[in-house]
Write a protein that binds this DNA or RNA. Structure first.
Length: 432
RNA sequence: UCCAGCGUAGCUCAAUGGUAGAGCUCCCGGCUGUUAACCGGGUUGUUGUAGGUUCGAGCCCUACCGCUGGAGCCA
């Protein structure tokens, strides 16, 4: 595609040439006869230098008048400059204001989180927020790339569902032509069906949780990537998760050094994320928590302090394996060596970022599934189609789901998950 | 839902129960290498809302609203 302007990310290809940039004024400093214009165009930021006796008076006056976040079209010579963080600078020869921005609310000084979230539509232009969302994109591309290389195909799962996939958590209810419908919490069960058709599949879906969770780790609308593979057993499932995390980390470290630098992220911690990841059993994790002074009884699920205690013992993600069947979903395959535990694992990110992946081998035996559904009081009728998968060519199969925002939070080193998604949906907050 | 903290200028915050302030934004002026530029000057208030105590309330009390963090639940 041929454009009449260039992007800042490509500026190095135009050294010594006069180019046109189309973007916005990020910030400005002025010293009487020189204006320093920080120009951003979404692909990057570059400093434009406008010298009074090198442009006509009208242009120089515009340079004085142009305000923060005004949309602008700038012409200039691309120069190398050691003082510039990117190595390049633009000797401005012409400036055109597309629209003059007035009283831009987000100033270069400090703001509180409530104010920034209220202006999220503008906040995402700021360099740190911009860096986070670019890293998010790279993470998503890494997942698509890894899974396709491994032979998975993308099969979408529905968002409007007639019933809950896992009855435990609260769902958002909506009206579907007079019948109740629910916003999906996971595409997992649907891709068990597509896995039986295509072998290896995955889906990116938003997941909705109407839980009254109000912490830095919870959203009511979050993105999940669920993968499912026919004939994969538990060990192969974990190997796939490990490979995917390593692929994500490799791509981010290769392609997002500038963004990580903007975020002041300690990349040495990320470089340690290499296979093999440690695997401990739920039982060992319980013992580890108690030894670390965070008491927990066998048979209880882990809370936030337990996550931290477990993950804090390792410098890379750790699998906690073989949870008690009583605290996990009905569809998880019991361990043949100890049927009180399931072939299901959670992957905990380091540095206290908590659980990012949950995965398991699924029950493929018809009678066992029906028995477990009865035990967990799961109604048959809405899940008839799901049971059908065990009637017509059932095979052992496994899958996992990764929480995208938690992964982004971890890799970016964020204090709060709300920054990991362009428009966070939080408890009782839906603006903007 | 529960626990804790907070609510003062557009923003970030000060102000022993006794005249409501600073920095930044913004506006004017100065400056040919600035990096959240700097220097000088200027504009900006129903102190979240309602009630109460008091000679006097931004400050104390009650209720409500909102925000922030956390718990439970969860990815």
């Amino acid at each position: 595609m041929k454009l009449d302007f260039v992007y800042i990310s490509d500026i190095g290809k135009h050294l010594g040439q006069e180019v046109t940039l189309k973007g916005w004024l990020y910030n400005k400093r002025s010293s009487g006869k020189i204006h320093f214009l920080q120009i951003r165009d979404g692909s990057g930021i570059i400093q434009g230098v406008m010298v009074k006796n090198e442009v006509d008076a009208k242009t120089f006056e515009l340079g004085d008048k142009v305000s923060q976040e005004s949309s602008i079209i700038v012409k200039g010579m691309v120069k190398e400059d050691k003082r510039s963080p990117s190595g390049y600078e633009l000797g401005v020869t012409d400036l055109q204001i597309v629209q003059l921005s007035q009283d831009y609310p987000i100033t270069p000084k400090e703001h509180g989180p409530a104010f920034l979230m209220e202006h999220r539509h503008l906040w995402m232009r700021s360099s740190k927020q911009h860096a986070i969302l670019r890293i998010r994109d790279t993470i998503e591309q890494a997942i698509h790339g890894y899974l396709h290389r491994e032979g998975f195909i993308h099969t979408p799962a529905p968002i409007l569902t007639p019933t809950s996939c896992e009855g435990t958590t609260t769902l958002f209810e909506t009206d579907y032509f007079g019948e109740p419908a629910f916003l999906s919490q996971s595409g997992q069960m649907y891709i068990e069906a597509t896995a039986a058709a295509f072998g290896k599949v995955y889906t990116f879906t938003p997941a909705f949780r109407a839980e009254k969770s109000k912490t830095r780790r919870h959203l009511t609308e979050l993105w999940m990537m669920d993968a499912e593979a026919s004939y994969f057993e538990h060990a192969e499932n974990m190997q796939c998760q490990e490979g995917m995390i390593c692929a994500i980390m490799e791509k981010v470290l290769n392609e997002c050094q500038n963004e990580l630098k903007t975020l002041e992220r300690d990349t040495a911690l990320l470089e340690k994320i290499k296979a093999p990841f440690p695997v401990i059993s739920y039982k060992e994790a319980v013992r580890l928590c108690n030894e670390a002074g965070v008491p927990i009884e066998y048979g209880e699920d882990f809370g936030a302090p337990h996550d931290t205690a477990i993950a804090g013992s390792f410098d890379r993600p750790v699998f906690v394996d073989r949870f008690p069947a009583s605290i996990k979903s009905f569809y998880m395959q019991p361990d043949p060596e100890d049927p009180t535990v399931v072939l299901g694992s959670d992957l905990y990110a380091p540095e206290g970022y908590g659980e990012i992946i949950g995965g398991s081998q699924r029950i493929h035996d018809l009678d066992l599934l029906l028995k477990k559904m009865e035990e967990h009081k799961v109604p048959y009728e809405p899940y008839k189609w799901y049971v059908d998968l065990r009637r017509y060519g059932s095979v052992p199969h496994s899958g996992f789901g990764i929480g995208i925002e938690r992964t982004v939070s971890w890799i970016c080193g964020l204090q709060h998950i709300r920054e990991a998604i362009p428009f966070a949906r939080l408890l009782e907050k839906i603006y903007p």
